[in-house]
């Protein structure tokens, strides 16, 4: 922000403080409940069944997008609630103080944090934002974000149920996810100006959270954080769901599946599939298993490692926090690493 704008801004704040007439809580609550009632009424009077005169492809686009929203929303809420707990209810530094001092060991511990917080990857984004607002570095938060969905008890159990110890799929997934997340963390820990990796909007949120305009009372601060975080995450989730739905309708899965038998192409095809399908890491093992024996093990590993870290929905959610350039770099690094891992499994195991 330029100094000029900062001055103007301060001026505006002074003006607004004298001009704004604060509305009472009772009025706001009434207004809120009225909106609630109006939305419920909309659902009740709208047709419960029928085709609404849409072409099949359009209907499926809507169904698929809704499905992403309904599936992810509870996890995003859970992530936001955990983020509120970390920022408001836990004593300052409760988590961060317990982390090792050495940066490398710190990132290793953070990448295992997912073991304690079995949240789906979309819930990790608000949590990582909360941790960053509390002092976690950008590189450390990235390590957490990319490791947690894989190094997560639910994910490990479902992967084991799906594949057992076959072809080293389970081990490659766990070790690969751990190494790639820590590699990304290490790369960005060497960045000279890590704050430039973040969107200006999120930088401001962090700055504001520190000292300015903090309402008093934990309940009130929680409510403010809830409105802030939902305002950041939900538009991204809804747009991400729309894009995911659109790609699903547009891209034929048959083409991807057809490449399944080739040791090189199958790896790339399944990474593309992981990218467009945007499925939760908790169940992606079952999903890919249901394709039966059509895919090489390395391709499955690439799917299981790349998908939880990067997909359309995750990129939309991450964009609330990181700049587009950063996300492009991260996608390239993780993509190359996953592809290498997949090819190695195909040719070595």
């Amino acid at each position: 922000m330029t100094p000029g704008r900062r001055r103007k801004l301060t001026y505006d704040v002074h003006m607004s403080q004298t001009l704004t007439v604060r509305r009472g809580p009772a009025l706001r609550l009434t207004l809120g409940l009225t909106i609630l009632a109006a939305l419920i009424l909309t659902r009740i009077v709208s047709p419960p069944t029928g085709e609404a005169g849409m072409a099949d492809a359009v209907r499926d686009f809507v169904t698929l997008s809704i499905s992403v929203v309904i599936e992810s929303l509870p996890f995003v809420f859970l992530g936001i609630m955990l983020s509120i707990v970390v920022q408001v209810w836990l004593p300052e530094g409760y988590l961060l103080r317990r982390l090792p001092r050495n940066p490398l060991a710190r990132r290793v511990v953070l990448s295992l944090l997912g073991m304690l917080l079995p949240v789906c990857e979309c819930g990790n984004v608000p949590l990582a934002r909360g941790l960053m607002a509390r002092g976690l570095t950008v590189a450390e938060s990235m390590t957490f974000l990319f490791a947690a969905p894989i190094l997560n008890p639910v994910t490990i159990i479902t992967t084991y149920q799906a594949f057992g110890w076959d072809d080293g799929i389970l081990l490659s997934r766990i070790l690969g996810g751990f190494l790639i997340a820590n590699l990304v963390g290490w790369i960005y820990s060497r960045h000279p100006r890590p704050e430039s990796l973040l969107t200006p909007r999120f930088q401001d949120t962090c700055a504001l959270g520190d000292h300015h305009g903090q309402p008093t009372g934990k309940m009130r601060r929680s409510a403010v954080l809830f409105t802030q975080e939902t305002s950041a995450m939900l538009p991204a989730l809804f747009v991400g769901a729309g894009i995911a739905g659109l790609i699903q309708v547009g891209v034929s899965r048959e083409v991807l599946v057809a490449m399944g038998g080739n040791p090189v192409w199958s790896v790339l095809a399944l990474m593309v599939l992981a990218f467009v399908i945007a499925i939760c890491s908790n169940v992606d093992a079952f999903f890919i298993l249901s394709f039966g024996g059509t895919f090489m093990p390395g391709a499955i590993v690439a799917f299981l490692v790349f998908g939880p870290m990067i997909d359309v929905k995750m990129l939309a959610l991450l964009r609330t926090t990181f700049t587009a350039k950063t996300l492009l770099q991260v996608t390239l690094v993780i993509g190359l690493c996953s592809a290498t891992l997949g090819l190695a499994v195909n040719f070595l195991v």
């Binding site: 301060t10 505006d12 704040v13 003006m15 809120g32 504001l208 409510a223």
Partner: peptide, 17 residues
């Protein structure tokens, strides 16, 4: 529940925010 609480207690944003 959080949404209803937010309606009741979240203050109007200052123009700076």
């Amino acid at each position: 529940v959080l949404v209803v609480v937010a309606f009741a207690v979240v203050p109007r944003p200052s123009d700076e925010e």
